[in-house]
Amino acid sequence: MNNYILMMVTAIFANNILLVRFLGNCPFVGVSTNLDSAIGMSGAALFVNVLSSCITWMVYTFILVPLELEYLKTVAFILVIAALVQLVEIILQKVAPALYRSLGIYLPLITTNCMIFGVAVLNVQQKHTFMQTLVYSIATAIGFDLALIILAGIRERFSLGRIPTLFQGFPVALITAGLMGLCFYGFVGIGQ
C-alpha cells in the first residue's frame, strides 16, 4: 500500500509528466487558454490514459510477450491508443457535444500524445504489475491534469492583467510553464 502512495506522489509531483518529464506539452499549451476546456481535456486525458495503459499492458503481457514480439510494442500500442481515442471521440460526440466542440482538434491529438504513449511504454519498461500500471496511469494523468488546470487558471487571469504586447499569448504562457516546471523540480528533493 505504501508503495502505491509513494508511486502516486512521485508520479504527480516529483516526476510530473508535463513539467519534469516534458511529455504531452502540445495540449498543455494549446488547451490551457480557458479553465472549462482545460477541465474537459483533463477528463478526456485521464480516461484515455488509464484505459490505454491497462489495455496496452494486457496486450503486451498476454499477446506480445508469449509470442516474443516485444519489438512490436510501439506499433501495437499506437494502434490501441488510436482506436481508444476514436472511441472516446465517438462517445463524446453523442454524450457531450459541447465538450466535443470545445476540445476540437486536441481530442484527435491525444492519439499522438506523448504522455499516453509514454506512460504505456514506461509501464512495460519498469515491469509494473497490472495494479501498479493502473495506479501509475491514474497518478500520471492526475499530474497532467493538475499542471494543465493550474496553467489554465493562471492564463485566465492574464486576460485581466496588463501584459506587454510582445509577450501576449503564447510567449507569456511558455514563460509561465517554465516557471511552473522550476517549481515542480522542487519536489524532486522530497524523501532524500
Binding site: 499477446i63 501495437a76 482506436a83 472511441l87 462517445i91
Partner: peptide, 16 residues
C-alpha cells in the same frame, strides 16, 4: 498478430 489486433479493434470501433 498485428492483423488480428487491428481487426478486433476496428470491429469494436464499428460497433461503437
Amino acid at each position: 498478430v498485428m492483423g488480428a489486433l487491428g481487426f478486433c479493434l476496428s470491429l469494436f470501433l464499428g460497433i461503437a
